[in-house]
Simulated scan of single mutants.
Amino acid sequence: MPTGVAIRDVRQQLFDAAERILLRDGPSALTSRAVTTEAGCAKGVLHRHFDDFDGFLAEFVVDRAHRMDAQAAALREAAGTGTVVDNLTSALTALFTSVAVAVVPLVIFRDELRARLRRTWPAGVPVLTEAAEMVAAYLAAERDLGRLAADAEVDGLAPMLIGTVHLLFADRTGTRPDAEAVRRAVTTVVTGVLREPR
Rank of each mutant, 00 (worst) to 15 (best):
R110N: 04
L30V: 07
V62M: 10
Q13V: 12
A78I: 06
E196C: 01
A181Q: 08
R24G: 11
E153Q: 14
A149V: 00
A79G: 08
L145W: 08
V190Q: 00
A17R: 04
A73P: 13
A39M: 06
E196H: 03
A18F: 06
H47G: 15
A17H: 02
R110V: 00
H47D: 14
L117C: 04
M68V: 09
A42L: 09
V10H: 14
L23R: 15
D144A: 13
L92W: 01
S32P: 11
T3Y: 15
R76D: 13
V107W: 00
F169H: 01
T129W: 08
G4S: 14
D111Q: 13
A79T: 02
V182W: 02
T36F: 08
G192S: 10
L88Q: 03
E59F: 08
D52S: 09
A73C: 09
A65N: 15
R172T: 08
H66D: 12
E112I: 00
G55H: 12
P2Y: 15
A39N: 09
R118Y: 09
E38T: 12
L161Y: 06
V182R: 00
K43V: 10
R67S: 08
G124R: 00
V35N: 02
E130Y: 12
D54L: 07
E133I: 11
A78Y: 10
L106Q: 05
E153P: 12
A158L: 01
R119H: 14
G124C: 04
A73W: 12
L161M: 02
R48E: 14
R76E: 15
S32A: 15
G40E: 11
A6D: 13
E153H: 14
C41I: 15
Q12W: 15
A152E: 04
T187E: 05
V103M: 06
T129C: 07
L194K: 06
I162M: 03
D25S: 11
F109V: 03
L168P: 01
G146L: 06
L22M: 11
M1V: 14
V193P: 09
R183E: 03
G80R: 11
R195A: 04
P177R: 04
A115V: 05
L157Y: 05
V103H: 03
L113W: 01
R147P: 04
R116T: 02
A100I: 00
T164V: 03
D111R: 13
A115E: 10
A29M: 02
V125R: 01
M160V: 07
R48C: 09
T173F: 07
A136S: 12
L22V: 12
P27N: 10
R20S: 13
E180D: 14
R119T: 13
A136I: 00
G55V: 07
R8Q: 15
A29S: 08
R176P: 13
V85C: 11
V190G: 03
D51P: 13
V35I: 08
S98Y: 06
T89S: 14
R176A: 13
W121L: 10
R143E: 01
F96L: 05
G26K: 06
V193D: 07
L117T: 00
D178H: 07
A123F: 12
R33P: 09
A123Y: 15
L75D: 07
G156Q: 15
D9L: 12
V103D: 02
A79N: 05
V182K: 01
R172P: 05
D52M: 04
F96P: 01
L92G: 01
